[in-house]
């Protein structure tokens, strides 16, 4: 369980300056899929960076399974918005996936197995010896996801991971994410600015209003497994979309 209470983040030395995250309260239950929806610049990335322990926050509290987060937690994985830059160009795909495992104390054999399994799960078996820059954008994103999976996190943070891939690849990646989440039983906190994507993926959708406060939260009562065509035709889907659209306050949600 991830608990966030009164999270506040102000960049720079002056604590009275305008906050990037003002006052954030929410919890994510184990194995829950929570989507965070918000327009560009409303503090989504800042929130994730605080949650992942990458940057210190100004005040408030973040606990993961009861332990306060002060640095990157061991059982958390992060998929960055800039996926192509988060892959190390001097390492092959396989090494990109495997290198964090050593520092987690996984022995070489188990690391190799986890790597191959993750490659297989994202449909990149046989591409392990390539370099990331020899792959298309969608494949690079799958490598980033495979790295997160091989790390066997209990919670996965994702920052607009599919924002810059084409629509076709995107729905493929969404379904891939849902199926591996199911298979590994991971908790997912997924940031996006796309209303349809948030509803399609999530158990719950939180709407962030700038400067990051939770403005609205909805529970998504759509059956699983979800289907790109059928789920999006459900009246409930349309209702949620309307509700969320209003919650974002008519503000443009395009990037």
């Amino acid at each position: 369980m991830l608990e966030v209470s009164h999270l506040r983040k102000v960049y720079g030395p002056d604590p009275t300056a305008a906050p990037a995250v003002a006052d954030l309260d929410f919890t994510v239950a184990d194995q829950e899929f929570v989507c965070v929806l918000g327009s560009s610049g409303c503090g989504k990335t800042t929130m994730l960076r605080c949650l992942s322990g990458l940057i210190p926050f100004t005040s408030g509290e973040i606990t993961l399974r009861g332990k306060p987060v002060t640095g990157p937690p061991e059982d958390m994985a992060f998929v960055f918005q800039d996926y192509s830059r988060s892959l190390l160009p001097w390492m092959t795909v396989r090494r990109n996936i495997a290198f964090p495992l050593r520092y987690k104390g996984v022995d070489r054999r188990a690391a190799n197995e986890a790597t191959e399994e993750a490659l297989d799960a994202v449909g990149l078996a046989g591409r392990g010896d390539r370099y990331p820059w020899q792959l298309s954008g969608g494949m690079q994103q799958r490598v980033a996801i495979a790295r997160a999976l091989a790390y066997r996190p209990s919670i996965l943070l994702m920052d607009e991971p599919f924002a810059s891939v084409d629509a076709q690849t995107r729905s493929g990646l969404e379904d891939l994410l849902l199926s591996v989440k199911q298979r590994y039983g991971i908790t997912v906190l997924f940031v996006t600015h796309d209303i349809d994507e948030a509803i399609y993926l999530g158990d719950r959708v939180l709407v962030l209003r700038p400067p990051a406060t939770v403005g609205h939260a909805v529970t998504v009562n759509l059956p699983r497994p979800r289907d790109q065509v059928l789920t999006k035709q459900e009246p409930e889907f349309a209702r949620l979309r309307g509700e969320l659209f209003a919650a974002i306050d008519g503000r443009s949600v395009a990037a």
Binding site: S52, L54, P72, A77, F78, S86, F99, P100, Y103, K104
Partner: peptide, 20 residues
């Protein structure tokens, strides 16, 4: 982003230096 990746995946400082 590479630096953050290494930190997020828990690489200790020395490993960050040699690997990144």
């Amino acid at each position: 982003v590479v630096r953050d990746t290494a930190r997020a995946y828990g690489l200790p400082p020395l490993a960050r230096f040699f690997r990144v």
